[in-house]
Design a protein around this nucleic acid. Structure first.
Lengths: 157, 157
DNA sequence: CGTGAAAACGTGACGCA
DNA sequence: TGCGTCACGTTTTCACG
């Protein structure tokens, strides 16, 4: 099911354009790519059905929403068993401060990306939601100075 | 400039709806929120101008694009001076495998989220693009088993 | 902020290679 | 099977009250 899908140059260019602006109209897409608008519609619908396109997200600026401080929390969960980590992930995901959660190899089991109002909020979050849990053995907090998104995600050349 | 913006309940509900589906029509928004479609248009345009809305992203599935393996690279850059880290970040950002880059506090200066075809690609990436650079003192590779996006980013409440 | 009209768009049916 | 043309209903968008 998580199989790779083969895309022709038309699909690729459509994806490239939509990654720059997900609201590009089918007519614009058609003009740029050199096919008919209805073809673009078909292609996008197929990409959506085949799971290549997962959805359209609105990207917001956390700082303008009163969440000017972001951090990564490296978390060790002990013992690292399903009965414990399942509920752990669900609770962390439900926090309004959480942006994303990663389950990793290495000494830290989870990495949690959070956005908070300031250091006081961060301290409260770490103490009340992480280190206070029995299954959390260790939390390492790293502030984010700056972050960059990278170029469009496209098939390996 | 990265100042917080004050939003009324209408703005907040619009943002909430658009985060679930960035392609919601202004008519639908208007119906849900209880204002006229043109007002929604104005609100969204203002949110866009004020920098709260950064853009509309298409979320793609890396696995379906032949990039089934993701990893986080923790990188130490020494010496950690502007003349070195500026070009470093730009080169890393330009790699097709890079998804995002973070400048952090703590023992590791940068965290790089990458998506590759497999372990061979990951090895090549680490050796050729990271450890081979003079300014890179250390790279720690952590594979991503699984990742979750969290609920909509909205003001602290 | 709402109204209404005009322009642009999404979407499906149909026909052609 | 996949693509292009056309046409209809809907949505966006703008000037105005």
């Amino acid at each position: 099911m998580p199989d790779s899908v083969d895309l022709d140059p038309v699909d690729l260019q459509i994806l490239r354009l939509l990654q720059n602006d997900a609201r590009t109209t089918y007519r614009e897409l058609a003009a740029e790519v050199g096919v008919a608008p209805s073809t673009c519609l078909d292609r996008v619908a197929r990409l959506r059905r085949s799971g290549v396109i997962l959805g359209n997200e609105l990207r917001l600026d956390p700082a303008r929403l009163g969440r000017g401080l972001e951090a990564l929390l490296l978390v060790q969960v002990r013992p690292h068993r399903r009965e414990l980590v399942g509920p752990f992930v669900e609770r962390i995901r439900a926090l309004p401060e959480s942006r994303s959660v990663f389950h990793l190899t290495g000494p830290d089991d989870y990495l949690v990306h959070v956005a908070v109002a300031g250091t006081a909020d961060l301290q409260r979050l770490v103490l009340d939601e992480f280190t206070s849990r029995r299954e959390v053995a260790r939390v390492e907090t790293r502030l984010i100075f700056q972050q960059w998104e990278c170029g469009p995600l496209l098939p390996p050349g």
